[in-house]
Design a protein around this nucleic acid. Sequence first.
DNA 1: GACGGTGTTAAACATCTGTTTTAAACTATT
DNA 2: AATAGTTTAAAACAGATGTTTAACACCGTC
Lengths: 234, 234
Amino acid sequence: MPGRTTRARCQKAPADGTRTKLLAAAVAVFAERGFDGATTREICSRAGANVALVNYHFGDKLELYREVIRYAIDAAAKMEMLNAALEQNADPSDAFRQLVHGVIERLSETRNDFGLHLRLVLKEMTQPTVAFSDVLDETLRPLYDRLRALIGRILNLPIDHETTRLCTHSVMGQVSHYAVAQPVLAYLWPEMKMTPEQRQRVAEHIADFSLAYLRSYRAKTAEQRHSRIPRRSR
Amino acid sequence: MPGRTTRARCQKAPADGTRTKLLAAAVAVFAERGFDGATTREICSRAGANVALVNYHFGDKLELYREVIRYAIDAAAKMEMLNAALEQNADPSDAFRQLVHGVIERLSETRNDFGLHLRLVLKEMTQPTVAFSDVLDETLRPLYDRLRALIGRILNLPIDHETTRLCTHSVMGQVSHYAVAQPVLAYLWPEMKMTPEQRQRVAEHIADFSLAYLRSYRAKTAEQRHSRIPRRSR
DNA sequence: GACGGTGTTAAACATCTGTTTTAAACTATT
DNA sequence: AATAGTTTAAAACAGATGTTTAACACCGTC
């Protein structure tokens, strides 16, 4: 096969219609059904394209998925910008609060595809595919590191301290729970309709819930450090 | 088709070999790959049985899954027992701490299949299947209600109060994170090998992290209630 | 207008997967 | 031992799904 094109590699796509439409449709379908659950036929159908086009433009399904993930990096980059802007903030607690609000409130946004991308990454977290390490290294780890840095500043601990990491995972667990377990949440708690107001209260709660420990930890260790009787217990 | 047996309905199975082997294999495969990802062939292969036997004994794949879920109810019932025993405990905070320890430490147990069942239910949470409401009503809701009751007692709030529910989901989010996002966790934090000691520290952390807010909330509202200047703000 | 490259289409292919069929093996009862 | 009911095995079936093929339309260039 000499003339095998498969322009997957050469990314100088003319930003034309079909390829972009396929990408957009793929984001939605992958976010809804996961990698295994999604079918190339549904993606093509939603994009109004022929079944063969996903293989023509991307080579195969996995490469399309990888491209979608790379697509999601842009969204994560925006997130990074938000995060960086927050770190300008003098008080890391305030920055933390704003960060949680930012993520939670964008999570249910289906119009802007930020929420879709985020759910995609979170879905990849629970059901890792072949693109596992790609996704993590390129999208999740920078977020993770920044969150760790922020929490480390609140705790007054180094970024690699076990407590810093444990707290970071406590926060990630709470946040991802509202993204990943949404159907269950709706079933167990029907009154929770995830309106914008309720989402704001959820974000407020997660921030309060987490900051209660983070601040008390900092206060406790600071007290121990300034205490005239060092190392009371041990 | 007159002699169609499909003994799925009549559950008076003689507790013999094949059916049980199939169930055990199905628990493992479903927990690993989810409902869609699991194939009847792999289940039969692991059970050392013929491909036709899952349909003979259970009717179809979905009914096998339902049976597996009902199987998991027994495990959840043991959990109930643990939980009920804990509620004997005078201090709800101690009961809460022990509960978190119990769940987290059993989560990684692959020998006793308690951990498998738990992961199965948690996986159903993130990727709901047709057995969705069955699973939730029969296994998750009782746990959810008990956890809410316990947290309500710590907070000194009714079980249906929004704060009680938000806190319950904060705890569930943290716990399920360690079950569902385990591969990601291992990748982001390679030193975390989930040894028994580390699992214990994780449980300790989640309890501390959560109780910091729960206790401070109770203290705050109690102070407000006994304050001579009622309703300072608002 | 011929031509090479690019994008698109309909059809077919190959594989996987849930399920069924048909017959054989086994078990317990008479 | 014969028989009826139950369980297992091998093969095949039917549908879905990722992928490929071969023909066709479009488009700018020589």
